[in-house]
Design a protein around this nucleic acid. Structure first.
Lengths: 338, 338
DNA sequence: CCAACGAGGTTTTACGTATAACTTTCTGCG
DNA sequence: CGCAGAAAGTTATACGTAAAACCTCGTTGG
């Protein structure tokens, strides 16, 4: 790697093509209709290609005062969910000439490092998952265009929000299980302080309350297979009649519940119906395949990016929750006849 | 925020503190030992905090000619493996004042978009997984410091490489299964043209060839649960004596194999032993828990970043593969007595 | 007593780009 | 013929920062 050869600049290209630097900028910026003749433009392009010229992004960003780069703040990437959100957001961004930089907030619970210190790139806007709440304080400081994913519309200080219709998903789960005949429910709740999980608990409770004769208990667990297994084991061995349906806040919790059920000698779905939420790859890896609510993470990311583009242009993004739908597989069945 | 919507610059801070812009730069750059008095420095810091000053990264990058930002090119983030690689790399990077930008190459097989178009940030270096090979051509163009992950040392054009000792992992798997008494093997190979997968096949073949009376067949599948399931079903119903041990190129393939085995009425591990490679969360979600080779993805990322730091300083990173180790769980047992 | 020095700053410049403002030449037309 | 205006450029400037070069004192050692 020759340190003697520094990267060519637009001035080098200009010299090679025998024109001024401004001409190079005009040609390469595709803004030369009637400013530069075609032969000259051709010479410039050839010289640029010859030298392997790449514009200096730092200089361009400085000049233009914007970077066409957006930050996506997500909780730790322990599932593919946010990877898919990224994919969707990046696709839409690319269509508009933007790049997306990913900032997974650190796994630990401590206060997040400053996302902007990590993403050394200057930024034009931010999309933040409400689950990365610990990183929020740093974001608030900058008055960048901001879109929140799955955040309490009232609690996000007027920032635009894009939400999955989780409430409807839970409603579909409840409906499905009630129709099968279940009446004793256990809610395996994610032990994460986030609005999107509160919605699950609230919606399940209100839906079940509308049907007489139902019973709802709740167990809390961190979002991990081991945590879910322990919490479920404890809940299943609690006194009183055993629940027949286990509603989990997400698929990972359901996977832990499977192990607890197996250890307790319960068969799924014959003795216990289980549902998840997310429809990760995990859902079809376990046996029986999990009845769960499919969240279209890519679409979620697309909507988030579109909303941010709107905000950056000073518009108000159109609201409207993203629909979700129940996928019935083998983990739910009518309750055992007592 | 009082006046216009423009962000405060170091000049604004200077004016507020009653000093020159240069003084601000000196104080905030922590390079003022004996250049600025403590009281003045204090005034500057207060003014900066008061105004909510944040240095313009684009300007700084332009001035310094470097960005302290590094690109991590990975295949699609469909498992948590590369998320952990990122975590490790980002930790080491942060310790050295660097940021890491993630570039997941698009899922499709088509030619990758230019990573540098996506990561609008200018870059000081690149860490690239060899599994994102389609993005490589674009990288070659720039003569940036480059470190390859899991790449053929001979085939990477002299770029530094950091490798997991996959060969040793496969050796441990073979040893384990041979010790249990297995002789008829099926290798479920990832249908991905990558050196790191070739190593698996080669090492397994040579190790088994060293033991007389062994038999090795191979099935190929894309890295997905469904793909693995189909390939395994086909292989298990092939004529001839059924294999008793199934060595999978990674955990996801093993999960698919589980389903195929179940559908074929085979119990794991009694009728069929199965091994994986990666030790993803998936490995302990399925039943029985998977005997697999644990790859320390975070450590992998750390080594990659350390190597890149060395390359960027003009040094030659110390080679040496990263050790891996077999984790024996419930999916392997002695072969069925015929 | 004065030169040298260092503390504590300030002035100036360069990084590479995009673009506004300007210049020159040529063409068409009244 | 004279001049408007377009075509095809060029010159000059600003973006915000870091740091080299410079300046001005008060102190001090010889």
């Amino acid at each position: 790697m020759a340190r003697g050869s520094t990267r060519p600049t637009s001035r080098d290209v200009a010299q090679a093509a025998g024109v001024s630097q401004a001409a190079v900028s005009l040609v390469l910026g595709e803004k030369w209709r009637g400013r530069v003749s075609e032969p000259t433009a051709q010479r410039v392009r050839e010289a640029a290609h010859e030298l392997g010229y790449r514009p200096n992004l730092a200089a361009r960003n400085l000049r233009l005062g914007r970077t066409r780069t957006v930050l996506l703040v997500v909780p730790a990437l322990t599932t593919e969910f946010f990877a898919e959100v990224y994919t969707g957001a990046a696709r839409i961004a690319a269509e508009h000439g933007f790049g997306v930089v990913l900032y997974p907030s650190p796994e630990g619970v401590g206060p997040a490092r400053d996302p902007f210190a990590s993403a050394q790139a200057a930024l034009d806007g931010v999309i933040a998952s409400s689950m990365a709440a610990d990183a929020l304080s740093a974001i608030r400081g900058d008055q960048l265009p901001l879109v929140m994913l799955d955040s309490d519309p009232d609690g996000s200080l007027g920032a635009a929000t894009v939400n999955l219709d989780i409430a409807d998903g839970i409603r579909q789960v409840a409906e499905h299980l009630l129709t099968l005949g279940h009446r004793r429910f256990l809610h395996l709740a994610a032990d994460v302080p986030s609005w999107t999980f509160e919605v699950r608990a609230h919606e399940l409770a209100t839906r079940l309350a509308a049907t007489p004769g139902t019973e709802l208990r709740t167990a809390r667990a961190p979002i991990s297979i081991e945590g879910a297994q322990k919490a479920t084991e404890a809940a299943l061995t609690a006194p009183g009649p055993r629940p027949t349906a286990l509603v989990c806040d997400d698929d990972k919790l359901a996977a832990g519940a499977y192990k607890a059920a197996r250890r307790a000698g319960l068969r799924i779905p014959d003795d216990l119906s289980v549902t998840g939420l997310d429809d990760l790859g995990l859902a079809t890896a376990i046996d029986p395949e999990l009845t769960t609510v499919r969240l279209d993470a890519e679409l979620f990311g697309e909507h988030g990016m579109r909303a941010l583009l709107a905000v950056m242009e000073g518009l108000t993004p159109d609201a409207g929750d993203i629909p979700v739908n129940l996928v019935v597989r083998g983990s739910t069945a009518p309750p055992p006849q007592h």
